[in-house]
């Protein structure tokens, strides 16, 4: 495997110029938390929209000593996660893991792992839509000016109108937040459940949108506040009494999926973070 990388590819696939460009843009993104930094998104051996932004960040940061975890929809074994993991390991030869606590770089789409992350870890998120102002201002040039002027009135009116029309803040994912009391950022594509994890976190969060050619970041210990009203506060998906059908966890983000059985099948609600769920199940078995 290492021979292959030595012969055919530069370490981590991307050439040196591309990696340097992305690292510079990452530094800028960290220096201006929440600010969308344009970057020269390269063509990747996977289709745009399948995580090329996150992949380019990972490939620019990764060193041979890193331990990698790749998840998609909270699952290490979903097709996309498997493919991305295979690509990264074949071009770098780094070790992989499914254990959140053992990984140094975690590339993910849709979820932040349930287990608390540490200062020595980096979470790389694959982002489909980078700019929250897209909802209210389709013109990118004007949206950029709005960001530079912190002119977020339109976005707030959008929240206001959401309450007027629906009676509540009806936003499932892509919940907009204000980072470091300055820039408005899309938390795409994580669910509301994971939004509070961004606030004053120990970990560095990096966001990459390959198709939109934007990089942004939430450095450790940065204030991340969801858009909310005092009388209509931001709420996660938590429902009192919720419980994972598999590991029994009562405080995790759950997903429903259909399980076929002899009687035709049924809906089961389990943890979205599969490796965490499996870890809990294993722990219960050993204690039992």
């Amino acid at each position: 495997m290492t021979e292959l990388t030595d012969q055919l590819y530069h370490f981590a696939l991307l050439d040196e110029d591309a990696q340097r460009e992305i690292r510079r843009k990452l530094l800028k993104a960290v220096a201006i938390p929440g600010h969308l930094v344009p970057f020269a998104s390269r063509d990747m051996p996977i289709a745009r929209g399948w995580g090329t932004g996150g992949l380019q960040i990972t490939l620019s940061l990764i060193t041979p000593e890193d331990t990698l975890k790749v998840i998609d929809q909270g699952d290490d074994e979903s097709v996309n996660a498997v493919n991305l993991r295979r690509l990264i390991t074949r071009t770098t030869g780094v070790a992989t893991t499914t254990d959140t606590t053992a990984a140094t770089i975690i590339q993910t789409r849709h979820r932040i792992p349930e287990e608390p992350m540490r200062a020595d870890q980096i979470l790389v998120l694959q982002v489909p839509m980078a700019d929250p102002l897209r909802w209210v201002e389709p013109n990118i040039e004007r949206a950029t000016i709005m960001h530079s002027e912190a002119d977020y009135g339109k976005m707030w009116v959008y929240m206001y109108e959401s309450i007027v029309r629906a009676g509540d803040l009806r936003i499932a994912s892509q919940y907009p937040v204000i980072v470091n009391r300055r820039y408005m950022m899309d938390t795409t594509p994580i669910p509301r459940w994971d939004v509070p994890k961004l606030h004053m976190a120990e970990t560095l969060y990096l966001f990459g949108a390959g198709r939109e050619k934007r990089i942004y970041a939430v450095p450790p210990y940065t204030a991340v506040e969801p858009l909310q009203f005092e009388d209509y506060p931001f709420r996660t998906e938590y429902r009192p009494g919720q419980r994972c059908a598999r590991c029994g966890a009562e405080n995790t983000f759950l997903t429903s999926h259909f399980v076929a059985d002899a009687h035709g099948g049924r809906w089961e609600t389990t943890c979205s973070d599969v490796s965490y769920c499996t870890k809990r199940c294993a722990a219960t078995e050993t204690t039992a």
Binding site: G153, W156, V157, Y160, E161, F229, E230
Partner: peptide, 21 residues
């Protein structure tokens, strides 16, 4: 595209009014 109230409220929201009521 916004309601009349939303248009007026925008100025308040910009002035950091954060109580819908």
């Amino acid at each position: 595209r916004f309601s009349v109230g939303g248009n007026v409220a925008e100025k308040l929201l910009l002035a950091e009014w954060r109580h819908f009521g």
